[in-house]
Amino acid sequence: MAFTDLPMMSTVQLTQPLGDGDDNGDGDVIYYSYCNIKAAGVLTDIDNMGRPRSKPTVVLSLNWGMIHTAIVCAEPGDTLWRAVDMSCAGDIECELPAIHGGLAVQGRFFVPNRAGDVLEVEVRPQPRLTYVARQAGDEAQSGLNQRSYLVPSGNDVGAGMLLLRTWGPGNVHYQAFTVDLGNRRLARHEMGGTDTTVFLPSVTLRSSAFPNVVANIAYLKRHMKALMQGLYI
């Protein structure tokens, strides 16, 4: 329940200076004329006594121009947002954003890539992404025709998350995975009987509390508006 001032969204400082071939002429600052905040979270570093080791860090996952992505972070007192180094993701920017949204869990911030791998934002020594869990075996795919989302698990025992990977025209098909942070792996998750309904990109509801929704499935983003209007969906 605290308030703080954060930098304006007009500029973001790059983790590394731009190369000589870049033509914006501003060295290590890039300008966003338009961007959408797809997810936000607060990173906290707490010792065993519950005391903060450093200032909390606000992280934003951004999309702009329909196909471009960026993750930026700032601490209270900063004058610029810092860009998170996303080079390890190795995704190709094409028809879909390489990173779509993200989720804060227990003072950490995670993002999925298109292929359904899970990465974590680390801010020290420099802001960067690191892999937490990768798709493996038959589940590993290129991701070029997919979108992936992280959503709360809806489990009352501990804060967990699910990864949902969608594909097909309109992204109408999906697979669900449990994200096991302790063992750094992904496991297929069956929605049936879980009493959870997911609204992409990031909302998980208890199915039994909402008689207007179908239980144990994932809805596309546009269906949330219909639910809020009291319609059966």
Rank of each mutant, 00 (worst) to 15 (best):
R222M: 12
V123W: 00
V111G: 07
F177G: 00
L103F: 01
R53P: 02
T194R: 15
A89L: 13
E95H: 06
L144P: 01
A187V: 10
G101K: 02
N24V: 10
N212F: 04
R188I: 01
I217Y: 01
G27V: 07
P17Q: 15
P125D: 15
E75T: 08
L186G: 02
L231E: 13
G77P: 04
L162T: 13
R147S: 13
V214I: 12
A89Y: 09
M224Q: 08
L119H: 14
L14D: 09
A115G: 06
I92C: 05
Q229F: 09
V132T: 06
G21I: 08
G168D: 08
E95G: 05
M191V: 08
T4A: 06
W167H: 08
F3H: 14
V42P: 01
T15K: 05
V72A: 00
F210Y: 13
D23V: 13
M86W: 07
N171K: 10
N155G: 04
D28W: 02
P152R: 10
V58I: 02
V12D: 09
K221G: 11
S87P: 02
K221D: 15
A218E: 14
L6T: 04
Q16N: 08
L150D: 05
A83E: 15
A115D: 13
M228F: 14
Y174G: 05
S54C: 03
A140I: 14
A98H: 02
G170A: 07
T79D: 10
Y32I: 04
D28L: 06
I217G: 00
G65L: 11
T15I: 07
D28G: 12
D45Q: 10
R184T: 15
I99C: 01
V213A: 03
R185G: 03
R108F: 03
A136N: 15
G21T: 08
S207G: 09
R222Y: 08
L162N: 14
T15F: 02
P201F: 04
Q175I: 04
N171C: 07
V12S: 06
